[in-house]
Design a protein around this nucleic acid. Sequence first.
RNA 1: GCCCCGGUCGUCUAGCGGCCUAGGACACCGCCCUCUCAAGGCGGAGAUCACGGGUUCGAAACCCGUCCGGGGUACCA
Length: 493
Amino acid sequence: MTIRVRFAPAPSGSIHVGNARTALFNWLYARHNGGVMVLRVEDTDRSRVSEESFRAVLDDLRWLGLNWDEGPEVGGPYAPYRQSERLDIYRAVVDRLLLAGLAYPCFCTPEELEERRKAAMAAGRRPGYDGRCYRLTDVERTKFEAEGRPYVIRFHVPEEGSTTFRDLVTGHVTVDHAQIDDFVLVRKDGFPLYNLAAPVDDGMMHMTHVIRGLDLQPSTPRQILLHYALGNEIPEYGHLPLILGADGQPLSKRHGEVSIGWYREHGFLPEALVNYLALLGWSPRDGSVILPLSQIVAQFQIEDVGASPARFDLEKLTWMNGEYIRSLPDDELLRRLEPFLVRVGLVSDPPSAAERSLMAAVVPLVKTRIERLDQAAALVAGIFREVPVDPAAAEKVLGEEYVPELLERSAAALEGLEAWDRDGIEAALRGVQTEMGLKPRKAFVPFYVAVLGSNVGAPIFDSMALIGREKVLDRLRQVREKFFPGPGAAGGT
RNA sequence: GCCCCGGUCGUCUAGCGGCCUAGGACACCGCCCUCUCAAGGCGGAGAUCACGGGUUCGAAACCCGUCCGGGGUACCA
């Protein structure tokens, strides 16, 4: 039998890392087993969904590289895949349940329910729905209907017995029916609720496995009961432990970086994020940490997923991102870096041929120095354009006594260079360094400040070579004038 | 309150009764390399396996209890 899994988000903007991890595990399960990945959009709550949120979900999944075999924009045998377009289906199912006496209208108002809930709590009883509308007589029911009283539709849960299911990650779970009250299937406004739409679709779409967050585990017995009522095959369930913030609290907006969009904008590589997410709750049998998607697919076993919650560690993700950046071929890294350089205006949009070759030259210089794509610009800005000297850096390294002489002599040496290339520049500056008896660090750091504007940057000989003789000498001149004014101040031996 | 699920270095985890004086990765510390910053190499520190009982010749692993954390208890998903 072909394995069929689904990712079923309620679209509410750029997806959350927890949802991304759920999507990933479903996708991995499908790919590892040669199954089918379905994307189903659970947008039945009209008040919370919008077209942009829907688009954002698709964009995020595509960016992560998690494609779907059936779903929006690709279609499939069970289309449509947006629940908002399947309302007739749910309506028909509810009619069937009503007819069979498995569901019933409930006329209790939210206020009444709230009141009874409080009373039950106070009396130390279970606060759930007491099932009173189930016991309504036909006369009462028709009377209420005739009065036009609004109602919801509830599913009638058997009073006796219990429901047990095997959870792929957590083991067997048993819940007594006494713990499950008659839950609402259809709202007053006629719209279906999660606990109706999800199992109906899972059944119709022939899902074999339902892999989702642990927060949904309590709703599983309800859904299984509904599956029985509908005569569906019961899918297998697997509930993934939740992802927590660094402080161990549930991941929320309060932790800032929760949406996939944020990671994209801050220069994270999708393959790094996917690799990191895969390791939250799962680990490969061979114990490796950096493993390409193909390896994750090859090794992924749902049985190897742990049941304890994991904290999201931005530092580790960032390290991993650096590893992925370093492993990229130069031309690929160039392609990924481009939008980040365009974004801060270091090159035009689109970049000119000259800018493009300059970027290409710069790539190997930044490769081992960045952990996120958005960090490159600061390291190489001085190569693309003149950057004002950072006052703090100037104070720190330009203040020393030997600096004016160093700058003076070096400028002269550079001016006299026959060919302006990296090795020539290095030879010239090392010459001055030896003559003056300076340590390499002392002799070269001032140039980072003077030429690149900061004491941190891409290697200075390479940078100078790329900037060009004219501009380098000009910047050195400016620095001498600004920081060491006055005739002879920078002079002699 | 009631129900469900968890609990191994700061963090992610390995461990599926003897291979554990508990292994790896991130972070941290030291040394080496070095034109800044990195990257890289080598080394170090870091865990009474939540706690208490059992089962067993033997327990991080199995069972029970306690505690702690999370989830659910919606006309959200």
